[in-house]
Design a protein around this nucleic acid. Structure first.
Lengths: 228, 228
DNA sequence: ATCGTCGATTGGTTGCACCAATATTCACGC
DNA sequence: GCGTGAATATTGGTGCAACCAATCGACGAT
């Protein structure tokens, strides 16, 4: 049977270990550059197998909390990527001044992202962007269009191959969301957006780094002028 | 010995597995709700131990790509297929690349911050920067110098008049903190840093927007080459 | 046909052995 | 005494095998 009910989520061993490691870092006042005890020792302390211990370390590693060096140890990293993004996440709705500030950030960031995407983008990224553009051309619903727009910019960021840049772009989009505002409520804006994206993507496909940068700059400028 | 040098990042087994899972999802056209083959089977297909395979699955699970149900299977989770592909597009890269990623972000951001500072910077910001530079010239302690360096870059961001950019710059600095590395341990690097800051500040004082941008770009490039 | 039981499947956990990279020790030669 | 380099120990990385726990599925009793 298939019942949608989610179980009370029994805690996995590795989850408990993650929590314990965090506590240990806190209590022993470990900072960037310090090392954790060896895995074998930690496994014994926490009373879990080395495998479960390592699952926890892997996760923390992917989150940027730890860095593993074979033959040496597990090192505490500085801040997490989450810390980096908190800036944008927390203070979303603080008025139009903030919207302007974030737009300024976009003006700085996105043209460079487009340039990097043109330089680094792999075929599968191009395909994803192309598919989105296709979809955008066939859509008229305002809500849907805004979503597609976000996806386009996020996918472009992903095409840089830099996970940090992707996260940042995602957060910018999210924090920019003027909840109800229908940016795409009229045909003119829809066309502007679509054509802008078209030119950007074409430049990326041609590996035209400077062109991609310029087109994105122009695109953002046009969008900005319609918003403000 | 403790050298900051990052190794060429040998690929871990679990990273390769993540990439292979991504390909599998693409090729078999899997979407939310579908299940992956059993772990034991996947391990054999990919020619890795179940342990390594599970590390990969754990990571994907934490990223929200997969959900594991004991006794049942590993299910694809992401809301939409686009979401899924975007996430997987950047999950291939990992771990030790993080510092490089953040540096790439700095390369994008900071020159523009310098340009904005040159354009918008108010006298009080200039004064603060000047004071910091003065202090930097009289300091030799490595720890202290790193702190001053951070303050310089943060103050510069503040000079843009954009609070969001300032917050972001602050977090980038903090998350970059190379573990214990004494970037300023030798006289040569101290001079490089000081001269770089000098040139940037001079450009800002002269309202030389392009100059500030160029000097910052050069400065970051120099710092990068000494770190990596 | 329905329901419950029991076996098979699948993820979760553990233990151990060995490999690979790194750190440490120590003996050797200068 | 002091490098210097080889041997040794330490530490993370990987693989194999067994068993536990939740779930699924087939089969038989009713």
């Amino acid at each position: 049977m298939q019942d949608t009910a989610q179980k009370p989520a029994p805690e996995r061993a590795y989850e408990a270990v993650i929590a314990k490691i965090r506590v240990m870092i806190e209590e022993k006042n470990l900072g960037p550059g310090d090392t954790l005890p060896p895995e074998r020792q930690l496994a014994e302390i926490f009373n879990v197998s080395r495998h479960s211990l390592r699952e926890a370390i892997r996760v923390l590693q992917e989150k940027g909390v730890l860095a593993a060096r074979q033959g040496s140890g597990n090192y505490i990293q500085s801040a997490t990527r989450g810390d980096l993004m908190r800036t944008l996440a927390v203070t979303t709705n603080t008025g139009s001044r903030r919207a302007l500030e974030i737009f300024q950030l976009r003006e700085i960031l996105e043209p460079q992202l487009a340039a990097l995407a043109a330089e680094m983008g792999e075929p599968r990224h191009i395909e994803m962007l192309e598919a989105l553009l296709e979809k955008q051309g066939q859509t008229t619903d305002g809500i849907e269009l805004r979503k597609i727009d976000h996806e386009f910019h996020e996918t472009l960021a992903a095409a840089t191959g830099n996970a940090t840049l992707y996260e940042l772009a995602k957060n910018i989009n999210r924090s920019l969301l003027p909840p109800k505002t229908k940016i795409y409520d009229n045909r003119e804006r829809q066309v502007i957006s679509l054509e802008g994206h078209r030119k950007i993507l074409d430049a990326i496909k041609n590996k035209d780094v400077e062109g991609a940068k310029a087109e994105m700059r122009a695109h953002i400028a046009r969008v900005k002028s319609t918003v403000f």
